[in-house]
Each structure stands twice: as C-alpha cells, then as structure tokens.
Design a binder for these strands. Structure first.
Lengths: 123, 123
DNA sequence: AAACTGTGGTATCCAATAGATACCTACACT
DNA sequence: AGTGTAGGTATCTATTGGATACCACAGTTT
C-alpha cells in the first residue's frame, strides 16, 4: 500500500469486489452461523433471523457459487439439504474477524462522527 | 465467535453494517488514494479513474460523515478543497489491508469456484 | 462587453440492482 | 385434506450507480 506499488489500483479494485460480494445484507450473517457447524435450510433461516426464504436461497446460491459453502442434498422425502462452510469459507473468517474486531471497537467513534456531522449540517 | 457468545449476532450485524458501508463501489478506492496523502477533488478524481463527479462527491460526503476523511475548503477563486484521511481513516486501513491480502491471495480460488459452478449448472 | 475556462459542486432523470412479499411446486406422511 | 421441506417464480418497491445539464465565481480571452 505504498506509493509506487505497481498493482495498487487493480489490487484495490479486487478487494473492493470481494468486499461488495460479502458486504451484502446477509452473507456475513449466514457465514457466521455456518461457522458453528453445518445447518439445514430452515435451521439456518431460524438461526439468522429476519431473513426471507428467497433471500436465504439467493444468498446461499451465491456463497456456493463463490466456493464458500457446500450444498449437500439428501434425496429423502421430505428433502433434506445441509449447508456447510468449505475450507475457503473458514479461511475467509480470519480476515473478516480482524475487520469485525475493528468494527466493534470503533462503532462508537463512527456513530459519534455521524451525530456531529448531522447536527452541524442541520444548523 | 464461539457458540453461545451472547453478543455474536448483534456484533455480526455491526460488522455487516461496516462492510456494507465501505463495500460500495468507490469508498475503498478513494480511501486507498488518500492513504498516500491529501488530495484535491479533481486530483482525486483523476487518481481513482472512471468515477463520475457526482459519485465522488457522494462518496466523499459519506466518508466525511462517518469520520474517515476531512474536507478543507480554501475560500479562494477558483475554490480549492482538500480531502485527507483522519486518524480513524488511517486506522481503518489496517484491518482492510488484512482483508485485501486475503482477497488478492484467494481471488483465483473464487474465480475457479465460479467457473466450476457456472459450467456444471449450465450442463 | 461577451464568451470561455477552471473549480467544486447541485439537480434531475434513467437504468440496474437489491430486497421484500406473496404465491406456486412436488412428495410423503397423518 | 392438511402439514412440512426446500425450494421457484412473479411482482413490487427502495436503493444504488451513472449520465447529463446546470450553477457561482473570477480571471482571461476575443
């Protein structure tokens, strides 16, 4: 991240892409829940809380496509589908955890900055 | 991040919020550029590349609101406005850098997972 | 005097995406 | 006939991103 780094811009764009990818409304919540072990669709839905069926389906498909979770179908009746983090998904948790700790530690500072900005702008 | 952690869900939601915040299309690119030192509006625009005036304005306002950058207006003619990272902005770069390294190191794995998923789904 | 230039914006409109809601399937069991 | 599972589809709205045009101001050019 020093000036003159030849690939700085494209690298940064790659990071931005990954951030946009996992920065949607539900992906992190889902990954975090699966971090405790595999879950079935409706278990996961209940564990996350507040997510609609469609959004969970969409979120899981995208996570599966990107190789973060695996989807295992048991051809029973009624059907049973297990979702589980892949190795890649578990590795992702490491840097995310770093960001998580920062976010938790600095949320108050951000909130206060917002409050200051909003009150001074409203004046 | 262990099962039974009482604040796991709300913490995770906080992280998700921060990620959504900086996970937009331009914020990280802008922060990265300002990491090399303060820049004027049009300098920044040229440095980032491909960003419209409106999007840069919007992005900078939000970053300013959240306390990541400062905006300094010099009341000259023509006007001159400098943007600079705050201490909070510079601190943010640390965990983001961790995620950045992960993203760069694993981009290929994600791409390959996508390719596999898309080809097998298309079949 | 009129028009153009460089700044850092704002206002407006349009397209694409994200998310929510409601309703649909198929199948077996009770 | 109704229930539970794991979805799919269709529709709607809200948010996001982007393009375009415009503004104010002063100096410079014509």
């Amino acid at each position: 991240m020093k000036p003159g780094h030849p690939h700085a811009t494209e690298d940064c764009r790659a990071v931005s892409e990954v951030l946009q990818r996992i920065g949607d409304k539900w992906s992190l919540l889902v990954v975090r829940r699966l971090g405790d072990g595999p879950l079935r669709f409706n278990e996961l839905r209940a564990a996350v809380g507040g997510i609609s069926q469609k959004m969970l389906t969409t979120t899981l498909r995208t996570l599966e496509r990107d190789g973060f979770v695996t989807r295992t179908v048991f051809p029973t009746i009624p059907p049973r589908v297990d979702y589980e983090l892949t190795e890649l998904g578990r590795e992702l948790e490491v840097p995310v955890k770093g960001l998580a700790e920062w976010a938790i530690a600095n949320m108050a500072r951000i909130s206060e900055a917002r409050r200051r900005f909003d009150t001074s702008a409203a004046a």
